[in-house]
Amino acid sequence: MAKTSDSSGTEQRGPRHVAIIMDGNGRWATQRGRPRLFGHHAGAKRVREIVEACPDLGVKYLTIFAFSTENWKRTQVEVAGLMSLFRRYITKEARALKEEGVRVRFIGDRVKLDAKLIKLMDDLEELTSENDRVHLTIALNYGGRDEVARATKRLAQDVAAGRLDPESVDEETLPRYLDTFVLPDPDLVIRTSGEARISNFLLWQSAYAEYEFIDTLWPDFTEKVFAGLIGNYGARDRRFGGVKT
């Protein structure tokens, strides 16, 4: 794999942080004459394979888009089914994630989520808090604009309270208020299913990310496909606005 450099000039061989918009579950199910939730269950199973592939591919951080702030517009049946799936996934996978060295974090606004799901999320974060092999971040009720708005509100509150000098605010200040404040920015963002848009995902953090839009539907996204995209990234010339001499 070709060597690349991050924004600090440190040499690296591949993306350290990969973010994935997992799209196409519903279409995958429809193509098979099954209900959309069947596709979501298939997609949830695919997550395990991709998480397990990360260490061998050199990916330390994986962020997946599970449910957006806009997904509430879907039918009540589908939304309820997805919430049930999230609860089942966390309950079923918690021990394996702990044993496999995966640290799990959730980003997004938890206000609209039910209390049982929030408790499961909190417990999983606590259970895996000492793990460091792979950092899995799950974006649940997440939207990039919503995240920036919430971060800006907290920043404004600190200014109003005298905890933050407004003259000191620069582009390094806001990230400290984002949901992802403990994570490095993504190096590579992948979207499956043939759609070529970012759908309000990690808007601030992805300013210098490389993008891959592929036709593969998420339930068909295998470790082999993932590895191929990692290889493509390694061949790219990342200059971060500069010019190599």
Rank of each mutant, 00 (worst) to 15 (best):
K3T: 12
K3S: 08
T4Q: 13
D6N: 15
S7I: 06
S7A: 05
R13P: 00
G14M: 05
A19L: 04
I21Y: 09
R27P: 00
A29T: 12
R32P: 00
G33L: 02
R34L: 15
P35S: 12
F38W: 15
F38P: 10
F38L: 04
H40V: 09
G43C: 14
V51H: 03
E52K: 04
A53W: 09
C54E: 05
P55Q: 04
L57W: 05
V59C: 08
K60H: 12
T63H: 10
I64L: 15
F65K: 01
A66E: 04
F67N: 00
S68P: 00
W72D: 02
K73S: 13
R74A: 01
Q76P: 12
V77C: 03
M83K: 05
M83N: 09
S84E: 07
L85D: 04
L85C: 12
F86A: 04
R88H: 08
Y89E: 01
Y89P: 00
K98M: 10
K98D: 08
E99H: 01
E99W: 00
E99R: 06
V102M: 04
R103Y: 03
V104P: 02
R105L: 13
F106A: 02
I107V: 14
K112W: 11
L113V: 01
L113E: 03
D114R: 09
K116T: 11
K116A: 14
L117K: 00
L117D: 00
I118Q: 04
L120F: 11
D122T: 14
E125Q: 15
E125K: 11
L127A: 13
E130P: 00
E130W: 01
E130N: 11
D132Y: 06
H135P: 06
T137N: 12
Y142F: 11
G143H: 04
G143Q: 05
G144E: 01
V148Y: 03
A149L: 15
A149C: 08
R150N: 04
A151P: 07
T152I: 08
K153M: 03
R154S: 12
Q157L: 10
D158M: 03
V159G: 05
V159L: 07
G162H: 07
D165I: 09
P166K: 14
V169I: 15
V169R: 03
D170T: 10
E171G: 09
E172N: 14
P175W: 15
P175L: 15
Y177I: 14
L178W: 12
T180M: 09
T180Q: 06
F181E: 13
F181D: 11
F181V: 08
L183K: 03
P186E: 05
I198H: 10
N200K: 11
N200W: 15
N200V: 14
F201T: 11
L203T: 14
A207M: 12
A209D: 07
Y211K: 01
E212Y: 06
E212R: 14
E212C: 10
I214F: 11
I214E: 06
D215V: 02
W218T: 02
P219T: 03
D220N: 13
F221W: 09
E223W: 09
E223F: 13
V225K: 13
L229D: 05
I230Y: 11
G234A: 14
A235H: 15
A235E: 15
R236A: 07
D237Y: 10
R238T: 14
V243G: 00
K244D: 09
T245I: 12
